[in-house]
Design a protein around this nucleic acid. Structure first.
Length: 257
DNA sequence: ATGACTGCCTCTGGCAGA
């Protein structure tokens, strides 16, 4: 079973790229972040036509997440990250697909730091940890994946100095991410690429893609019930180099059926 | 080098992204 995640940076601008990727790679489950559309405008029919059923949580202009499943309907468990009734940003969608709990997240970027956006990021990560602890307690196969907007370690960025002041790699952001790992979740890409050097994002600016100036911020965290079944991981880098590409590449994990 | 690019909604420029 292959479960993928893709920060698509706008479903309207990216639909041809995204359907092409689905048809070429045929993941069993696909999580999208930054769909950047309101709920009525999500192109569920276009995905249905190529064999995928969708649930989504949209928002005007920004954010927005979706979960697609091949030949089966994702069963929605939770929409929006619990823990703050004031938070209306569409960044969290949780479903069950084929006996696996799928948690699709778009974690706040947090720039500029310090400031309210960085505080929002850190409080969001606290709430995520709490939600993940509840899921952990269910002792089920679960995978939390998406755009975490955290560079976990220096080995996960082409040049640590270049990003030193960025919210993505502040000690507070890294500590909050490390706590999830200490809680027992397995960073699937890191587990199978322990020396680092794996990028999932390249900026549109300054020829970052051409120079391979990237970093790793898209992650997949596995509960023990999933980690025991981990066969392979990957980043579909080639899609970053195509016409009208997202600034992220898709990531995927393969679990034993 | 306070640079660079892209998408969105449209106050077609300002915001957000990372």
């Amino acid at each position: 079973m292959r479960i993928a995640s893709f920060n698509i940076n706008g479903i309207k601008a990216r639909l041809p790229r995204v359907t092409e990727w689905l048809e070429e790679t045929r993941p069993d489950v696909a999580c999208f972040q930054e769909i950047k559309c309101q709920d009525p405008n999500f192109p569920a029919d276009a995905f249905g036509a190529i064999g995928y059923k969708s649930i989504w949580h949209g928002q005007k202009s920004f954010n927005g997440v979706a979960i697609l499943a091949r030949e089966t309907e994702p069963v929605e468990i939770q929409r929006g990250l619990p823990g703050d009734d004031e938070d209306e940003q569409a960044r969290y969608l949780e479903a069950e697909v084929g006996g696996i709990r799928i948690v699709c997240i778009y974690l706040p970027n947090g720039n500029p730091q310090p400031g309210p956006k960085f505080e929002y990021k850190l409080s969001w990560m606290q709430r995520l940890r709490s939600r993940m602890a509840s899921i952990w307690a269910e002792e089920i196969p679960a995978i939390v994946l998406g755009d975490f907007n955290v560079i976990p370690e220096d080995k996960d960025v082409w040049l640590p100095k270049a990003m030193a002041d960025d919210a993505l790699m502040q000690p507070e952001s890294r500590d909050a991410y490390a706590r999830l790992l200490h809680d027992g979740w397995t960073d699937a890409i890191d587990r199978l690429n322990p020396r680092g050097g794996v990028w999932t994002y390249w900026d549109y600016q300054a020829g970052a893609w051409q120079r391979d100036h990237g970093f790793r911020i898209d992650h997949a965290l596995l509960s023990p019930e999933c980690a025991d079944r981990l066969l392979a991981v990957g980043v579909d880098r080639t899609y970053r180099g195509r016409e009208k590409a997202s600034d992220h590449a898709p990531i995927w994990v393969e679990l034993q059926a």
